[in-house]
Amino acid sequence: MSALTSTLQRLYGFWWIVLPPIVGSAVMAMIIGSIVVAPREIIEGDVQRLLYIHFPSILAAYGAFGVVFLASLVVLWKRDLRWDAVARGAATVGVLFTGLTLATGALWGKPIWGVYWTWDARLTSTLVLFLIYAAYLLARSMADELDEQAARFAAVFAVLGALDIPLVMFSVTWWRTLHPQPIVMRGLERPALPPEMLLVLMIAFLGIGALALWLGILRTEAEWLAKRTATLRAKIDRHEGA
């Protein structure tokens, strides 16, 4: 075993001790911060507080889908089913947080836009993102844990999905757009949020990011354990048959 692998494994074991308290305290801080500390938005009112979940969730989802893409490339390249477990774990987290983004967006949209849903460019592309990776999870779950061919198919689909995202965004932007313009990431300009709100948002980034990482790791481990159980069961069956 190389030094790098053992370092990574030690670091990974360390995460089990470090991540849960970070996740717990950051998420608590996020909830308290967004309800108590952050000031009430003058025009939108309390419903604006959903932003503290909405925006970090979509970033966490993008991060997770990035991991799905990379892990799927490794599955195709190395044929290592461990990366299939990583891709599935990350896809689950990505779908979860995309769903959370869509749900909080709909709750915000009703009082502000007057409708839960509209076929706006960003809403549409986020929904398509959700559907692509939900289809990925569905396709992967319909085949055997240890089916390497199915893992390859799922990986090819994940690569297709990731490469489809720019095209989806481009096409729906041409189609229509209604979503509020970015207020935090405006390049070199200063963010348009007041400092208290920005602070709470930063805590929310940490909380949601850590939560996504934690859930992703748990899900990946569960997938990997399921694969190992299936391998062992197959071995026992062979042994009994012989």
Binding site: L138, A139, M142, F153, D164, L167
Partner: peptide, 25 residues
């Protein structure tokens, strides 16, 4: 890809249509 999977008749549209959204537009 889906030919070897269970429930492929349902799976194929679920996989294909989201990817085809730009083409549909």
């Amino acid at each position: 890809m889906s030919a070897s999977m269970r429930g492929r008749a349902m799976l194929l549209p679920v996989m294909a249509l989201p990817l085809l959204v730009p083409l549909l537009i």
